[in-house]
Amino acid sequence: MIGLDVGSTTAKAAYPEGKFRIVESRNWRELTDGIAPCDIVSTGYFRKSVPHKLAITEITAAAFGAREYFPDAEVIVDIGGQDTKVIDLRNNTFLLNDKCSAGTGAFLEFTAKYLGIQVSELGDLHMRAKKAAQLNSTCGVFAISEMISRMVEGASVEDVVAGMHYSFARRVAKLIPEADRIVLIGGTVKNRGLTAALEEVAGKRFLIPPAPQTVNALGALRYSEERP
């Protein structure tokens, strides 16, 4: 059995021997080579479009996956490519930001594209910033015009990236309930600059699993083991 998470940007697989693989979503077939549909538990927005024995939502997958690393987690914040999900495991509730790109991976991609850099470079640029540029807008569209204004005023790319991360963090932090053990997952969490900004804005340390991007794939696998 494998756990297969096919999201809007990347596809991730968790294999029983403890291995993970990540490819672009359109190449998801590479992850299931030689694996029969009856051995796949899928999750992610495309869970029903790929062969599967069982398809579960990312919210359930996240709960099962995060528990593997942090059994006493209270809240999970999953910052994905197209939405951000906040799952409160204490009372089985969840909040989703999926209407607005601000506070999602799409916002970061949008910004990186405008600045002519790769999304993977954003974290390092943030760390080299001298003074984060002041960006007040949490809206993706207005944030870009603010970035232009700050650069015209002389801010460096590094400072603008850091400012953008703070703007992003302010948006996400509003969704997070008061809790001690908050787990951050999702591909975006690999961005050190963003997590640093989020911790500063929220005023707390977060728990980050070693492979935040594959937690949902692992959760799908664990779900199949616990509820065969």
């Binding site: 579960i56 939502t57 990312e58 919210i59 089985n92 969840f94 989703l96």
Partner: peptide
Amino acid sequence: LEQSQNRVESFIEM
């Protein structure tokens, strides 16, 4: 309507 349906499915799973 995938996103709203996703919420409904998640709730049922919970």
